[in-house]
């Protein structure tokens, strides 16, 4: 018999990497920037975090290192899109390709070593899982109740108007991009430090792209991101359970489940956004557009 509480705890753990990455990308997109480099920032965080945890022997320092590395690797993207006015889709892709390559290059010495153990937090859950859950109300509060969040949303909704009001559009966006990188880095490090307990090339396996889909699913809200991350955590846990139970479906087909679920959810939510005429619940107005102040 499966214990539902144990299953829920597994779900929380499985959804944490995507929760961090998607919350970060949520803030980035609310500032009007589409960063398709989430996968590259996650894998960078996974490696840097693992290496930092391994060398210091302290997993918490590992996560701090991952946040720093994620923010740093996002900087070229910030420079390209904010100062050189490069296409955001192409620049994000470049970030993903670059990050995957860089992590593979510097990851060689980390192959085959084990991560230092982490003492569990309350209820036997990982501290980082708790931190992720805490980030949901924190980001909700920041976006909807704080002055800084209001400015950030203004920049994302209409950058020309925000500029006319005297806000520094670029500075807000660069800060958001760095924050998104740090969050993606923590998410990636959770996979290497707390889930797999070692480093392997390409270990994020599309989690960054799923996070991007979840931001769409969430309708650009923090509680929506949590719901999306749990949904995917649920699909992942279920899929692993079925594998373990020896269901007579090939393992390769079962492991497609998270990706197929992403497509299905994306289609369902896009259809709702396309066919309903309700105001709100749509993408930020300036999402993906270049900002170039002529005056």
């Amino acid at each position: 018999m499966i214990d539902p509480v144990a299953l829920f705890l597994l779900l929380l753990s499985a959804s944490t990497p995507i929760l961090f990455a998607a919350l970060g990308e949520l803030v980035v997109e609310r500032a009007g920037v589409l960063n398709l480099g989430v996968e590259g920032m996650m894998i960078t965080g996974a490696l840097a975090g693992f290496a930092a945890a391994y060398h210091t022997g302290n997993p918490f320092l590992g996560f701090a290192g991952a946040a720093l590395a994620g923010a740093l690797i996002a900087l070229p993207f910030a420079v390209l899109t904010q100062f050189l006015l490069s296409n955001q889709v192409a620049s994000g892709l470049a970030l993903t390709l670059f990050g995957l390559g860089l992590a593979a290059l510097f990851g060689k010495p980390m192959e085959g070593v084990k991560a230092p153990a982490m003492s569990p937090g309350p209820l036997g859950l990982n501290w980082i899982v708790w931190l992720g859950l805490l980030m949901v109300p924190a980001i909700w509060w920041f976006l909807n109740r704080s002055r800084a969040g209001l400015i950030l949303r203004g920049v994302g909704e209409n950058h020309d108007a925000a500029h006319a009001l005297g806000y520094d559009v670029r500075r807000v966006r660069i800060a958001a991009i760095a924050f998104g990188g740090a969050m993606a880095g923590i998410g990636g490090a959770f996979i290497s430090i707390s889930t797999v307990l070692q480093w392997t090339e390409g270990m994020t396996a599309g989690a960054g792209w799923i996070a991007l889909a979840i931001v769409v699913f969430s309708n650009w809200t923090a509680p929506g991101v949590l719901a999306g991350a749990w949904l995917f955590g649920g699909v992942t846990v279920l899929q692993l359970r079925l594998q373990a139970a020896g269901v007579r479906v090939p393992v390769q087909l079962l492991s497609m489940a998270p990706y197929l679920a992403t497509i299905i959810v994306l289609v369902a939510i896009s259809a709702r956004q396309k066919f309903s005429r309700r105001a709100g619940g749509t993408a930020p107005g300036s999402l993906g557009q270049d900002f170039h102040a002529l005056r």
């Binding site: 599309g206 769409v216 390769q252 990706y259 289609v267």
Partner: peptide, 30 residues
């Protein structure tokens, strides 16, 4: 999926890479 439902072709086509990789693995082993 983009034409009918407005789903992002970027994300859907990318997700289908992972699906295709698993179909290839299934084919090779099955």
């Amino acid at each position: 999926l983009r034409n009918w439902f407005g789903a992002s072709e970027i994300l859907v086509s990318l997700m289908l890479v992972y699906v295709a990789q698993r179909i290839a693995a299934w084919m090779a082993f099955g």
